[in-house]
């Protein structure tokens, strides 16, 4: 795979999705994300932004359009879905740590099972990742013994342990107490400095202003506006964006 600066990591074209109850959630969404780019997706609730990024690793299916992840077409072929999931990490709003495993085993599980790596090797990597997100001393605890912010940092480390090329964040700070939001955003800021491609659904305006290369507004199952953060927040082109920003700023 080439790694030119304009290499497309995510390429969504005309994606449409209907829920089984007939609700038209995505109405022909287009989005391109380049390698190493940090894209923040904003929008009112029910705008389809979570649904949209969940199509990138096939947690949601779609009926029309196409999505290519790092050049691989996301179709119905199960082997390709598995291949894509190995390269796309995801951090959830509700953390979704495995409560029956220790923090360390949460990180070690997937690389040993999916990539077939040796346990000792993965353990060393996992400990250094936990050190990076600042919770190495909690490695032997169970998730239920940690605070929300710590759990979310473990979840980020767990996703990183698979060495994904793309990391998706689905409202990572929305379920946190206000005083814990910062420790999670700090970890994400650090990550954004690196080569990894990030797509972040969030309501954190300051994070978007400081970290994002591009901010995307979704409304009613469509992308309304895409712009660099300075332009997006100071001088939006669309009326819909202005209304949205009025409500959250």
């Amino acid at each position: 795979m080439t790694s030119s600066p304009t290499h497309l990591m995510i390429e969504a074209r005309g994606v449409q999705k209907w829920y089984p109850n007939g609700y038209h959630a995505l109405r022909g969404v287009d989005l391109s994300v380049h390698r190493g780019e940090v894209v923040v997706v904003m929008g009112p609730s029910g705008s389809g932004k979570s649904t949209f990024i969940r199509t990138f690793n096939a947690l949601e299916d779609f009926q029309e359009g196409s999505i290519r992840i790092d050049g691989i077409n996301l179709g119905n072929d199960l082997r390709q879905i598995d291949a894509i999931r190995r390269e796309v990490g995801m951090v959830f709003q509700q953390f979704n740590l495995f409560p029956h495993l220790t923090v360390l085993d949460n990180l070690v599980l997937a690389p040993t099972l999916v990539r077939g790596r040796s346990r000792t090797e993965v353990q060393a990597q996992a400990l250094s990742l936990l050190d990076r997100v600042g919770i190495k001393e909690q490695a032997q605890k169970f998730p239920g013994q940690l605070s929300g912010g710590q759990q979310q940092r473990v979840a980020i480390a767990r996703a990183l342990c698979m060495e994904p090329r793309i990391l998706l964040f689905d409202e990572p700070t929305s379920a946190l107490d206000p005083e814990m939001v910062r420790e999670v955003l700090d970890v994400m800021r650090q990550l954004a400095q690196e080569d990894i491609t990030m797509v972040v659904v969030t309501h954190e305006v300051k994070f978007a202003e400081q970290v994002a290369h591009r901010v995307v507004l979704m409304a009613e199952g469509n992308v309304v506006e895409e712009a660099p953060p300075a332009q997006f927040f100071k001088n939006p082109k669309h009326e819909r964006t202005r209304r949205f920003l009025d409500q959250i700023l």
Binding site: N57, N96, V114
Partner: peptide
């Protein structure tokens, strides 16, 4: 919770692996 299955699948675990290592123990 459904999120357990989603988290395991998004880490690349296959359906049987998810069942045996994540869902059934809980």
């Amino acid at each position: 919770p459904k999120g357990q299955m989603e988290a395991a699948r998004s880490l690349g675990l296959s359906y049987p692996q998810t069942l045996v290592r994540v869902v059934l123990p809980q």
